[in-house]
């Protein structure tokens, strides 16, 4: 039953994806993947996703720490809100973020006088990817922080450790493996994100065109093999990155134990 479920719903469709590009021939696949525009899109998607996941390490870590270690009115509400990007349809987040950060939007209007454009530029993509990745990071770190006894921090503090020392020597090593998992999830989600990004990205080739959009464009040009080739390349790349992160996570865990 498990095998039927996995086989029918995941393996079969992926097989179709893996088999498709080769009708172009090896050369065709390489040629279709090394066009400057494709390389630029891949660089953008992976660079932005890694960058957003990295910033989410800090922001997500902060939010998780605050949610676990402090008490303030509305904490439970804040806690529930963290999952919002996860539950909100991506198209809705895309339209909402664009409206917010466009030059005539609530927040974009604040940046516009300084000549900063957020929507339709790379910062917009970055914000959308931050948005979709945040809950993964918070939810990965939160339980570990929760299980990490508060008295360790307390003890360190009694022994005269500064707050900074507590953070770097006590908290960080403990949450590192979980943070790596969160990073991996946030990255994986961000790199493939489509719905919320196409609204806010300018979609300019070579500058703000993300790889998933290029897949769609190829599909619309009836270039199925080319679309599948790019999809496969994305899949392979993220798989490599995720495998590396997984290895790192295991190392950290062993180190911790």
């Amino acid at each position: 039953m498990t095998l039927a479920w996995v086989g029918l719903l995941v393996v079969l469709p992926l097989a179709a994806l893996v088999a498709r590009p080769w009708e172009l021939g090896m050369h065709g696949v390489v040629a279709s993947l090394t066009q400057p525009r494709v390389l630029a899109a891949l660089r953008l998607s992976f660079g932005m996703a890694l960058g957003a996941a990295a910033l989410n390490l800090v922001l997500g870590g902060l939010v998780a720490w605050v949610l676990v270690r402090t008490r303030f009115p509305g904490r439970r509400l804040a806690d529930a809100l963290v999952d919002l990007p996860f539950a909100l349809p991506t198209a809705v987040s895309g339209i909402a973020l664009t409206t917010l950060y466009a030059p005539n939007g609530w927040l974009g209007g604040l940046a516009a006088p300084f000549g900063l454009s957020i929507a339709y530029a790379r910062p917009g993509i970055f914000i959308a990817l931050l948005f979709v990745g945040l809950p993964y990071m918070v939810r990965a770190i939160q339980p570990v922080l929760h299980d990490l006894p508060g008295d360790v921090e307390e003890a360190a503090s009694t022994l005269g450790a500064t707050h900074w020392q507590i953070v770097t020597r006590v908290i960080l090593p403990a949450i590192a493996p979980a943070a790596v998992v969160g990073f991996a999830m946030a990255f994986a989600r961000a790199v493939g994100e489509y719905g919320s990004v196409i609204f806010i990205a300018g979609n300019m080739p070579n500058r703000t065109e993300i790889a998933p959009l290029l897949i769609v464009i190829r599909l619309e040009q009836l270039d199925y093999a080319g679309a599948a080739a790019l999809a496969l390349a994305m899949l392979a790349l993220s798989f490599l990155i995720l495998a590396a992160l997984n290895l790192l996570q295991r190392r950290l865990r062993r180190h911790l134990a």
Binding site: L12, L14, L17, T90, A188, V191, G192, E193, A228, A231
Partner: peptide
Amino acid sequence: LLLTIIELPLTISPVISGLVWVLL
């Protein structure tokens, strides 16, 4: 391997998730 395969859809762009069914 089974676990990895099951987790794969999380790392796949939604666009590709639609595309695979069209390819099939």
